[in-house]
Design a binder for these strands. Structure first.
Length: 1003
RNA sequence: GCGCUUGUGGCGAAAUUGGUAGACGCGCUAGACUUAGGAUCUAGUGUCUUGCGACGUAGGGGUUCGAGUCCCCUCAAGCGCACCA
């Protein structure tokens, strides 16, 4: 009957939507079409129906509906069970929809969440949307559509797609960063940061009121706080300050502050970007040039937390590589600050060095061109030259400076005095010294620093080696090793007779630091590369700052008035005056007496004041969302103390490693700040982190644009009608296709046309790249779900390889997973596919062994996220149970539970079919019984001189002596032992027997 | 340049952490059942060799009774940082 239908092509789709998807299959599964070119889409699905006692479509739709209706996945903290918090990095709902790469991490965490629930934990597994962001706004500018509209549409689509995969998300707790009920707390946290400063002694944030009290009593005496600039004043001076001066002083300490800083300005995007949003002088989004510009911006004093961010890494379970990336990004370096006097004056300036030991090799000093010291130190004679040089440097873009490391610089005319020897050292200006790091000035030791070396050679400055055996004729000797000499050189008098000669470099560094401190020349100092985060964006689609400006000074909107809603605007582009899009908002001023937003024409600077026009960056909303999930409906607090005390922090966080220096730093910073405030009880937000690999898209055909090195995917070039081809990687070397081999492999392409380049090479192949709309290579999970079902998709994505690994998407092999599920299904049913086979019989010992092997393996694998190895274990178990003709309920029921984390619909269906009335989610994970795993005998290899010659069975409990005897007496052993002398025998129970032999009489 | 990671069949990958290399899946080959196969089942499938056997985990060396696994060197790829003193 089915065959008949198939031939006629009359199988109905179950809904219009499904019919649409069925029709789409051909485009997305080119390889299947190639194999059966004359087939229609409907006929193909019929082929699946034909073999389908396992009716996944019906099963999955039914259970998804039931789960939603019954609230199977809703969790509450009102329970005695221990908690477990699983979290995925929430997605940005882009217009392209979900692709097969997204679910990889979601599936991995879903399996873990379900497993933990079966193990008796109360599992929180929420989901939400990182809904603010640039693409929605760009789209709004182009089409005039409100970003909220497109964002909501995209979210609806994401939700639909997610629902089809059968995740155990508690949607009651959904958050969206653009939802006022959510961003109220983003704004709230910002205000708390404004009202706090960071005390270095206590290494924590404190209310700014404490600092004010301290200033009133003692001035800056005894203040050790993170700040933009070290200040020094007395209590009297503080009291004498006017409002503006005090405002400026406090701004210097606030954790959220307005700062005049060099920022990454992207003219094309019309906004400022954070360091992690820029790569090689180009914006990550869009790849537009980014320039350095001094602007007044809101900043977060992330750098204050450098040490805590660093120390915290030792207590969390993240991969070494991502910890290392964060350590690099934080960039702690221990060194010393030293003061140098300028010859002929009483002026001094400070430098930072990690190689204090090389003080005797200093032959010049260098200032950063942007440093204010340049003005002070340049002599009149050199002024013209220096000014011209500074102008030249300003004209170079960040990108140019990065790519092209030129050796340039000029002499300032001044000399510094070496505090150890009194020697004169010329002071230069050069672009290789960065204003933003250390003090913006260095002491140059060309013998032991390659950059100083290049500079010295270029300008003919002396090179003085200080380490025994160091050859500096060609290169500097940068290694921090060896024995110090020439420090000082013979006959040179030094301050207090100081000498480092004969010490190791390590000792010399320590010695110098100590000396510098004792003599008051300088101090030990730790520098961090981590910069404060610039927090303003000149965009529309983001959280508005709850800030207005009174006499030019920032004032916070009262906390009770939050959230400050994002205003409506007519145009999303920046205004003609260069103001951010919020400059277009009519109703965007704060009335202090009415305590509400009013029309900006009412601004009178008495009661009504202008509101901030910037919005917050993407990372604002994603920094504390994990806390909000704990208590997402709470209007009184970001999270209640009770909810926080129960859920604590995220036990397992799953997401991409590309967030290593962005979200994962900001989130940790934000959490630590909230920890200081007492809002959260945990100092780290994410205890364990698993970075799922990217599933890359595969461009079917790649060709080189003539005369360039640019490769373009075929689909990008319109009107070029060539069949997309998957090419095996070993058919391609240096991007050139071996056309003969290719045609031999795929004869159907004998007639295909290949693009021939000018140089006679065929350029072809596939490129593996990010799956994205712009690459036209998005594989939609819906297509897979329609064809094979969610459970097969889940299984297959996990079977593909280790979760952490990136891999190209490839549907070869998905059939294997589907077949496996059908085979597993058939374990439970009579041949007719209608009657359950399961009976209450006593399980055989063999089946018990199969089951318990499986329990052990799968349990161990899930704990370490090795899902790709547990699936083969299921396959083996199914084959064994099939062979054993197992019908025992005791075995099959537990098998269903073991499968449940991987294939929830499949398991739920069978669980109920076997008579259960509650969800398989609430079953109990079976315990391994070692008793059943015991083997009577083990098959081991027998080696001669380390080479396995044969294998044989040994009793499991054989002693080494017995093993030796058994192996020796085996018939296969004779030919390896005859005429040989046994030198030694190594027999390890349950492992190996190895005879070490050499020619000679048998002994 | 510095740091981290990886390198195993035609392909995706396993390997009890030093003990029978290639589990499992894909692909391929042969066979069975079939009007048919794109279904299902059975057998085979690292390379070389008619065979015995030899070789085989990027390459080279070492430790060991025994190395994919540990140590040293080289090469290749990926990621991160990069004029950070």
């Amino acid at each position: 009957m089915v065959r008949h239908l198939r031939k006629r092509g009359h199988f109905p789709a179950s809904s219009p939507e499904e019919a649409g998807l069925l029709r789409r299959i051909p485009q997305s599964c080119a390889h299947l079409w190639r194999e059966v070119p004359d087939m229609s889409g409907l006929a193909y699905t019929l082929h699946i129906q034909h073999n389908m006692e396992y009716n996944f479509r019906d099963i999955e739709a039914r259970w998804q509906k039931t789960w939603a209706e019954e609230g199977t996945y809703h969790v509450s903290e009102k329970t005695d069970k221990p908690k477990f918090y699983v979290l995925n990095m929430f997605p940005y709902p882009s217009g392209a929809g979900l692709h097969v790469g997204h679910p990889l991490g979601y599936i991995a965490s879903d399996i873990y969440a379900r497993y933990k629930r079966l193990k008796g934990f109360n599992v929180l597994n929420p989901m939400g949307y990182d809904a603010y962001g640039l693409p929605a706004e760009q789209y709004a500018i182009q089409t005039g559509q409100h970003p909220e509209k497109t964002t909501n549409e995209n979210i609806a689509r994401y939700r639909q797609q997610l629902d089809k995969i059968g995740f155990c998300f508690d949607w009651n707790r959904e958050v969206r960063t653009c939802d006022p009920g959510y961003y109220k707390w983003t704004q709230w946290a910002f205000q708390k940061m404004f009202d706090s400063y960071f005390c270095r002694q206590e290494q924590k944030a404190q209310p700014i009121s404490q600092l004010i009290a301290h200033f009133e009593a003692h001035g800056t005496e005894g203040v050790d706080s993170a700040c933009s600039e070290e200040l020094c004043f007395t209590a009297e001076e503080w009291k004498a300050m006017d409002e503006q001066q005090r405002y400026d002083v406090l701004m210097n300490y606030r954790i959220a502050y307005l700062g005049e800083t060099m920022v990454n300005w992207c003219p094309a995007l019309g906004t400022v970007l954070a360091n992690d949003e820029v790569s090689e002088g180009l914006s990550i989004r869009g790849g537009y040039p980014v320039e350095q510009k001094k602007m007044r911006q809101w900043c977060l004093r992330v750098s204050a937390y450098s040490q805590r961010l660093l120390d915290g890494l030792d207590h969390i379970d993240w991969s070494d590589s991502i910890k290392e990336t964060q350590r690099n990004w934080i960039g702690r370096s221990e060194g010393a600050e030293m003061q140098f006097r300028i010859k002929g004056t009483n002026e001094t300036f400070t430098i930072f060095t990690t190689r204090a030991d090389t003080i005797f090799g200093v032959t010049f000093m260098v200032l950063a061109p942007e440093s204010e010291l340049v003005q002070r130190l340049t002599t009149d004679a050199q002024r013209a030259e220096v000014e011209e040089y500074v102008k030249y440097v300003k004209g170079r873009t960040e990108r140019e400076r990065m790519i092209d490391h030129r050796v340039t610089g000029v002499f300032t005319g001044s000399y510094a005095v070496n505090p150890f020897t009194g020697a004169d050292v010329p002071v230069w200006v050069s672009e290789y010294v960065l204003a933003g790091y250390g003090t913006g000035a260095i002491m140059a030791v060309p013998a032991h620093d390659s950059r100083d070396y290049a500079f010295a050679r270029h300008f003919g400055l002396p090179v003085v080696p200080l380490i025994e055996g160091a050859d500096v004729s060609e290169n500097s000797f940068d290694a921090k090793e060896g024995i110090v000499q020439n420090s000082p050189a013979e006959g040179v008098e030094t301050l207090a007779g100081f000498s480092l000669n004969g010490l190791s470099v390590k000792e010399a560094i320590a010695r110098t630091k100590q000396f510098v401190t004792e003599q008051g020349i300088g101090r030990v100092k730790v520098n961090y590369r981590l910069r404060d985060a610039i927090f303003s964006r000149q965009r529309y689609w983001g959280e508005p700052f709850p800030v207005y400006y009174k006499q030019g000074r920032a004032v916070m909107v009262p906390e009770e008035c939050l959230p400050l809603l994002l205003p409506e605007v007519e145009k999303f582009e920046p205004t003609a005056t260069g103001e951010p899009p919020l400059g277009n908002a009519k109703c965007w001023a704060w009335d202090e007496s009415k305590r509400c937003v009013v029309d900006k024409t009412l601004v009178d600077d008495v009661n009504v004041f202008p509101l901030e026009l910037s919005t917050m960056p993407g990372f604002a909303g994603s920094s504390a969302y994990y806390l909000r999930y704990m208590d997402s409906k709470n209007d009184e607090a970001l999270v209640s103390p009770e909810a926080n005390a129960y859920w604590k922090n995220v036990d397992l966080y799953v997401g991409g490693s590309e967030h290593a220096t962005g979200h994962l730093i900001y989130s940790r910073f934000w959490d630590k700040f909230l920890f200081d405030l007492g809002v959260t009880c945990m100092d780290e937000p994410f205890q364990k982190l698993v970075n799922q690999g990217m599933i890359q898209g595969r461009s079917n055909f790649v060709y080189r644009v003539k005369g360039t090195n640019t490769y373009v995917t075929l689909s990008k070039k319109s009107g070029y009608d060539v069949t997309p081809i998957h090419v095996d990687v070993n058919m391609v070397s240096n991007d050139v296709l071996d056309i003969e081999r290719f045609k031999a492999w795929r004869p159907e392409y004998n007639d295909a046309e290949f693009i021939l380049e000018d140089d006679g090479r065929y350029v072809c192949g596939w490129a593996v790249e990010k799956m994205s709309k712009s690459m036209f290579n998005v594989v939609n999970p819906d297509d897979i779900v329609v064809k094979y079902g969610a459970d097969t998709l889940r299984l297959y994505e996990m079977f593909l390889g280790p979760v952490e690994q990136s891999k190209p998407w490839d549907t070869n092999g998905i059939d294997g997973c589907f077949r496996f599920l059908r085979k597993a299904w058939s374990l439970f049913w009579e041949k007719d596919g209608e009657n359950l086979i399961v009976e209450d019989s006593e399980p055989t010992r063999e089946s018990l062994k199969t089951l318990h092997k499986l329990i052990k393996k799968v349990g161990e694998d899930i704990e370490v996220f090795s899902y790709n190895t547990s699936i083969p274990a299921f396959m083996v178990a199914v084959s064994e149970l099939q062979q054993q003709k197992c019908r025992s309920r005791a075995i099959l029921e537990q098998f269903v539970v073991l499968m449940a984390p991987f294939t929830p619909h499949f398991s739920e269906e069978l669980w109920h079919a076997m008579g259960h009335t509650t969800s398989v989610c609430d079953a109990q994970w079976p315990e391994v019984c070692e008793e059943y795993l015991k083997e009577d005998s083990v098959t081991l290899g027998v080696q001669f001189n380390g080479k396995v010659r044969f294998s044989m069975d040994f009793p499991a409990d054989a002693t080494p002596e017995q093993m030796r005897e058994l192996a020796e007496s085996a018939p296969e052993a004779r030919k390896h032992l005859d005429g040989m002398q046994v030198v030694k025998v190594v027999a390890v129970p349950r492992r190996i027997v190895n005879f070490v032999v050499k020619p000679g009489p048998k002994n």
